[in-house]
Design a binder for these strands. Structure first.
Lengths: 225, 225
DNA sequence: AAACGGATGTTGGAATTCCAACATCGGAGG
DNA sequence: CCTCCGATGTTGGAATTCCAACATCCGTTT
């Protein structure tokens, strides 16, 4: 574990828990450090859904197979990211996805039930771990809620505008910087980059906004006139 | 609380916790039963995000205002449903939405921090409550993940097919029943009902599936020849 | 300064979706 | 059996999006 403390300390799951406490916690929870060879699974679809994993070194991907067995890559995980908690915490009996190492990798595995069922001597950091898991799940919920709201808008223009209004509100100013480039924004909103670009131009010409690079400025519209 | 035990016992948040245990739990957590008059807020946007609410009687809605103050209804909550946990658990400082009673209503309010921070004498049902919260958040995550995957498909046809393949897989059979009518499915997938209807017809004619009402049957396609 | 490359903007025709209007089906009730 | 009505399917033109190809801008390198 010593080798990975720098990763663990940056992992949202263990935020606020010191190195010594982590050691205690892992003992208490029966945490396992596992080496996975390139191409081998961390777990397979259909396995009991009880694990929460933390990626310690690069090269772990989540894959799912459709009804006809066509495999698609769901996500590629970075060191410090955790996986499996949504499935294990949702009470699913079986994992609906598989996780493979695409290189020789190390992962930390925790038993979700042991994490959530509190030990008799309630240690502070165990409670912190639960709060961190809850926080992560809740934050993903909020992120999903927003994304779905944008994607549910009918037109490219509306998706863009709802997103920009949200940014303005979140940043508390009609003038703000978005955290991604045009291509990433288009992908996030589920629209064509070029169509979005065209809409941005129209909005500019209509005097509704100004933008340069990642900087945007929404112009107040008189809605009563 | 006696009046509402039937609602509370059906609430996912309190699953597996008996009436007597609930009484103890509510005492321990300082739960508050609150009456809200029609039109009054349960909480307002900008309030500290620390509450988890449970709707006890009909008439509670979540609203949000955009950057220019235009109000839109986010969702209407049914008795037994909980609200606010995503915001309070995500560590937001302030509520990004308001919750209003649209009729005289009763709600139960819990302090999220007190729920997640375990009391020194770790009672079993307190742990259960935490697990139920985590389960709810995790299940919403899974539901969102699916919806986003469907909505991210480019065409109506692909959205529909990915959804149907998922259903087949989830129900373990090429023949299955979906839990909603055409209009609701179209809304869920973010497509036009009529466009979806047209796609279904095409797929039928192409021999790729059969359907009647909520019953569907996917035809195995020989992908190797 | 010139060359280069990545990000962004523009354009036009093909493909798709949207929308309204209407057709058809099938169950509930008279 | 008939009528009604909601759910579903069909259709055609308008609107939008998609896609590829290309233009422009701008910072970096040589």
């Amino acid at each position: 574990m010593e080798n990975y403390f720098s990763v663990l300390s940056r992992c949202p799951l263990f935020q606020g828990i010191g190195q010594e406490d982590l050691r205690t916690l892992f003992g208490c929870l029966g945490a396992k450090f596992v080496s996975v060879s390139k191409g081998d699974p961390v777990f397979l679809e259909g396995d009991p859904a009880q694990l929460v994993g933390v990626v310690l070194s690069v090269g772990v991907q989540v894959v799912r197979d459709d009804y006809y067995g066509n495999r698609s890559v769901f996500s590629i995980l970075q060191p410090g990211e955790s996986f499996g908690e949504a499935f294990s915490c949702a009470g699913l009996a079986h994992m609906p996805v598989s996780v493979f190492a695409i290189r020789d990798s190390e992962v930390l595995l925790l038993n979700c039930q042991r994490v959530l069922t509190l030990c008799s001597r309630t240690c502070h950091f165990h409670s912190l771990l639960v709060q961190n898991i809850v926080k992560g799940l809740a934050q993903k919920n909020l992120a999903f809620t927003q994304k779905v709201r944008y994607m549910s808008q009918k037109t490219t223009r509306d998706k863009l505008l709802v997103y920009l209004f949200d940014q303005a509100k979140q940043q508390g100013s009609a003038e703000f910087v978005i955290p991604c480039d045009r291509q990433a924004l288009a992908d996030y909103l589920g629209v064509e980059r070029t169509a979005m670009s065209a809409e941005i131009s129209k909005l500019k010409k209509a005097g509704l906004l100004d933008t340069k690079g990642s900087w945007f400025c929404l112009k107040q519209v008189d809605r009563n006139g």
